[in-house]
Design a protein around this nucleic acid. Structure first.
Lengths: 241, 241
DNA sequence: AGAATAGTGTCTCTCAGACATTATTTT
DNA sequence: AAAATAATGTCTGAGAGACACTATTCT
């Protein structure tokens, strides 16, 4: 901003501004993403098409982009303090037929929700493999793909999957989530060493299993941010940011 | 976007939309950032204050956010194909007294420029240590701080500093840039092994020194993206993205 | 006792860091 | 020859992966 001549009046055309949220969870050992559906009213772009939950900024109601993302997330999922991180922004003249628009994308991780909740709010949990094959409205397929890439990348070297579980959780449970997101098996011994050495977990009692030895329950020490490991899981296939 | 009732008319108030660029370079072994200055005209916010180069999106002229960032970068520095990466976005009701505004921040790495160019375009190269102590207009100090953190973080495990040098460059030169950005010395042997093993460099002849043995010159194989190393420089102090 | 799951120990490999050593140029 | 800088070699330690092994519960 700030230096263009002729802009002082502020009467030039402004882009549309949106916030979209990519919400991930793991259900039945499979990574899912929350999708909404475009309205079918006349004049609406992409009528009836699946899309990411989101919407226009309401300058009277939203104090900030982050707060807007939190509001939309709460409206759709009922969660109010999930792990939430900015993914990036997409803006150009062509992505929305209604005009030049820019969207700010956030990605969120939530523990497995109760199924009925999602259905009631007119959104749907979709396995990421299926979502990747769907044609989402606007450039939402591209944004979703970026979110999935970012999640898989960061899972290689952070404790992000801990935010996909209800507490307390066990180390075997956490390992299963890692494996679900990365879509490959991990060695149990290496996994446990890594998690415990990182020091982001604190014990929280025993968790009885339906069969076999009970497991130690854990909580994350700081819910605010993820821990970062000194190496990726497999150094040979290092991950982007 | 896409599901708010009452929005179909598109006649609701829209935020101001800007793009700001954080341009880094290394001169005389010191990391610098490019700063502009707010106009002093009446009605302008933060008159005369230092700020990041940037400005409002021109929906008639800019096809996309990225192209807008490239345009501003070219206007201010003359570089047209630098390393350019999206940093994030900042948007809220309070950051600009003229109204609800959102800015998309990009950070760029350029090789050492000719000094006069910057001066002629009404921008100035400032050492980052000094810039960190200045009160920049709007929330630009916060944005600059995030950019510096991102750069230092990624330098721990990527080849980003190669984009801060003119080609061909030597490994000792590259090491000096790493040390300038990280503000700590690195071991020569470990550094060379790391860079050569990463495979992102290709030899480009010999580079004579003023004194001593001449060094091998190198070019980066792919100018488009940075290489990622399997570990951070010091695993003990792992870095965020 | 046996099945099932949780949790540990040991060995090897890779790579970062420390630091000593060798190589090639100019004066 | 001496100085200066480039480049390599050797040793050690940390941590990842493979995989065998032990521990604790239930039926």
């Amino acid at each position: 901003m700030h230096r263009e001549p002729g802009h002082d009046e502020l009467d030039f055309p402004r882009p549309l501004v949106c916030v979209d949220v990519i919400v991930f969870t793991v259900m039945q050992g499979v990574l899912h993403v929350l999708l909404a559906r475009r309205p079918s009213a006349p004049g609406e772009p992409f009528p009836g098409a699946p899309c990411l939950p989101g919407g226009f900024i309401d300058v009277a109601r939203d104090d900030s982009l982050l707060q807007c993302a939190l509001r939309k997330l709460h409206d759709k999922t009922g969660f109010s303090s999930p792990y939430l991180e900015q993914l990036g922004s997409w803006g150009n003249a062509a992505r929305d037929p209604r005009g030049w628009s820019a969207t700010h994308a956030y990605f969120a991780l939530v523990p497995p929700p109760d199924m009925p909740v999602a259905a009631a709010r007119d959104v749907e949990w979709v396995p990421v493999e299926r979502a990747a094959q769907m044609a989402l409205a606007f450039d939402h397929s591209e944004i979703f793909s970026a979110a999935l890439g970012r999640l898989r990348g960061k899972v290689e070297y952070t404790s992000l999957p801990a935010f996909l579980l209800n507490e307390p959780f066990t180390l075997p449970e956490l390992q299963h989530v890692y494996e679900a997101v990365l879509a490959r098996p991990l060695d149990k011994s290496a996994f446990r060493k890594r998690m415990l050495d990182a020091g982001f977990l604190e014990p929280a009692g025993q968790v009885a299993q339906t069969v076999g030895r009970p497991a130690t329950g854990y909580r994350v020490r700081e819910r605010e941010r993820a821990a970062i490991f000194p190496r990726t899981f497999r150094a040979s296939e290092a991950a982007a940011d």
